[in-house]
Structures are given as C-alpha cells and as structure tokens.
Amino acid sequence: MITKDMLVADIVKEIPKSADIFRNNRIDFCCGGQIPLSGAVNDKSESLDTLLEEINSLQTNSAGEGLDVQYLDNASLINYIQNKYHIPLREEMKNLTPYVTKVARVHGERHPELVEIKEVFTALKNELLDHTQDEDDNVFPLVINYTHTPTEDLRSQLQPHIDELETEHENAGNALKRLRELTHDFTPPMDACGTYRLVFSRLEQLEKDTFNHVHLENNVLFKRF
C-alpha cells in the first residue's frame, strides 16, 4: 500500500505506471523525486487522497505485469536503458528536428513562441545527445568496471561523473518544463496544421520518455552508488 509519507521516486520504482499520474499532475518524480508524496501535492495536482487512490488502484490492476527493472543487475539495467531510451532518443531527435524547424519557419510569424520552442528544443537535443554518448562511452563502462571491482579508487572516479550527469538531468528537466509552458501543455492552437500538431504530440512524448529515462538513472542506477 502506497502512503503519503513515501518518497515520490520510490513510488515510481514500486509502481512504474505511477509516473504517468505524476506527470499529468505536474509532480517531478525524477530530479525532484526525493520528497514525500504529501509534500509534492501542488495547486496543479489532484488532492493527496485522490492521488493515493489512483496510485493504489494502479498497483492492484498491474499486479504480476511487466518487468520490474529495479531488480535488474547493473549490466542488465544499463542494457535496458540503452535499448529502451538511448537508441530511440537518437532516432527521434533526427526525425523530429526537421518538423520543429519547418513549423517555426512557416508559422513563426503568427505564433512567435514557435521560434523559442525551436531554440529550446535544439539546445535540449544537443545536450541529450552529448549526454547519452558520454554515458555510453565513459560512465556506463566505469559503472560495470566498479561493479566487478568495487575499489575506492574506481568509486572516486565514478562519483564526479554521476554528479555531473544528475546536473545535466536537471537542466534537461528545466528545458522540458519550458517547452510545456511555451506549448500551453502541448495544446496546439485551433488553426494548427497537421505538422504543427505532430510536433506538439511528439514533444509531449519526448517529455514522458525523458522523465522515465532520468528516473531510472537518478533513482535506480545511480542511487546504488
């Protein structure tokens, strides 16, 4: 049974689908997830009792379903993160960029917020691509090495990387929050064309995937160290 005193990040570890409830209620479960549910309720969220009811209902309905990734060993969890998030992220950024650019160019005069959306998206894209490449090339191999040989020297090498990655995660979260503000919760205007609507829909999916991705790293993998 989920209670009001449980940390938000721990609730998502226990019931992964609760991430959708938190996201819909503007509750940060990744970078800001180290607070109790009772302290996370805000003026844009449902009441504490309603949130508890929804989350505990999820727990009942999802019993026995899916892969509980918090119990994967480090190598398996890293493999899961790379295949579930890193590879699809690179593909999505490549495919989404032309649409974001086109919409800003065609509709930016009537909707000047699209120009800032393009700027924020471009900065976020560059940071996330560099970030995931650094993880794959440097940090994850160091994690595996430390897992097999847990020396103090390797731990001292690993910790600054984790600190830097968590800071970058927070920066990405701030960029996504700005995108949500600029898009009015990813709601296109009445006169939006199909491509316009496509961009907003895929930006919303990017937010969801990135929050889930960051949660797995911050609150599951990195927390082990």
Rank of each mutant, 00 (worst) to 15 (best):
T3L: 06
K4R: 14
D5M: 00
A9V: 04
D10N: 12
I11Q: 00
V12T: 05
V12R: 00
K13I: 05
E14H: 10
P16M: 08
N24Y: 01
C30S: 11
C31E: 06
G33V: 07
G33N: 05
I35Y: 03
L37R: 03
G39N: 14
G39W: 05
D43K: 15
D43I: 11
K44F: 13
D49A: 15
L52Q: 04
I55L: 10
L58A: 04
T60F: 04
L67G: 01
L72W: 03
A75F: 09
Q82D: 10
Y85N: 12
E91H: 10
M93W: 09
L96T: 08
L96F: 08
V100F: 05
R105K: 14
H107Y: 12
R110W: 04
E119H: 07
T122L: 12
A123S: 14
A123Y: 07
E127S: 13
L128W: 03
T132I: 12
Q133V: 09
P141L: 07
I144W: 02
H148G: 06
T151A: 10
P160T: 06
P160R: 08
I162Y: 02
L165P: 02
L179Q: 00
L179M: 11
R180K: 15
E181N: 11
H184I: 01
A192I: 03
R197Q: 15
R202L: 10
E204Y: 09
F211H: 12
N212R: 11
H213E: 01
V214E: 02
H215Y: 09
E217M: 02
E217G: 01
N218Q: 05
V220K: 06
K223S: 14
